[in-house]
Amino acid sequence: MPAAIDHDARRIALAEVAADLVAAGGAEAATVRAVAAAAGFSTKAVTHYFADKRALMLLTYRHAALGSKARTEASQPAEGGDIAAMLHALLPTDPTVERDWRVWFSFWGMAIADPEFAAEQRTRVRELVGRIGDVLACDPACAHLAADERQPAASALLAALVGIATQVVFDPEAWPAAEQVRAIDSACARIKRQAAPSHPALSQF
């Protein structure tokens, strides 16, 4: 009897192969044929799971997004929240995270002219802003942020993170891991200062 095939695992494995190809050569490098060759499959086997390159890229992007979600969840303490730890987990300080950023950047370029990809991009960004906002609500250092201040603060932190990641990908020598951490910690500190209540003794002056 033939061995059972875990089709979900096979799709994820192909998405991993595609992500590596995108990171190395851009979206144009992740053709169905190239993915099949890198995975050791026939082209027919790959098209069994993906009708075309577009479908393959969509899953690859979603898989990278799920990876970032898992990293942010693992970064959090059992109780409360730690916004700095969450953002540290998303910095491209190791090859896997940097690879995912390269996938995201490639996908964003495709999303400019593709309404479905653009909708996917908006959904993922809104989800990430929401997760950042949830952590801000749980982080004791940000407890004084009003509910209506969290979304703007979360958006500002994501903008800082994307800016750092962009520079790392295109100018890595100028952005070693320590500099990435320093930059995101500065962004977090600005939010925490915004959240901190004024000292009662100083309010008289």
Rank of each mutant, 00 (worst) to 15 (best):
T31I: 09
L158M: 15
W101M: 07
D82W: 12
I132H: 00
T93A: 14
A30W: 04
A177K: 04
A27N: 07
W108C: 08
R71K: 13
M86Y: 07
C142N: 03
M110G: 11
E116M: 07
A23C: 05
W175F: 10
H144P: 07
D94H: 13
E16L: 11
D6Q: 05
Q194V: 13
A24N: 02
Y49P: 11
K44D: 15
F50W: 04
A64R: 00
F205V: 08
I12Y: 02
V97H: 05
P92A: 00
V32M: 03
V125C: 04
R193D: 07
W175L: 08
D94V: 11
G80K: 08
F107Y: 11
A15G: 00
V97D: 03
H63F: 06
A137H: 09
H199I: 08
R54W: 10
D52P: 08
D8Y: 12
D8I: 10
I83Q: 02
S155I: 09
A19D: 01
T72E: 13
L136Q: 05
L58C: 01
Q194E: 07
A196M: 06
A111Y: 00
H48K: 04
A183C: 11
Q121A: 15
C188P: 04
E173K: 01
D94K: 09
V32N: 04
W104D: 10
S75V: 09
L14V: 06
S203G: 08
R190V: 13
L136D: 07
S42V: 01
R10K: 14
P77M: 11
S75G: 15
D139E: 06
H199A: 12
G25F: 12
H48T: 09
A146M: 14
H63D: 11
W108E: 11
I5V: 15
D6T: 02
C138F: 12
C188Q: 00
L59E: 03
P172H: 00
A119E: 12
F117D: 01
A84R: 06
R10C: 09
M57W: 12
A196D: 13
A39K: 03
M57A: 07
A36R: 02
P172V: 05
V22G: 06
A178D: 15
A39G: 04
A143Y: 06
L56D: 05
A3N: 10
A39V: 09
A159V: 08
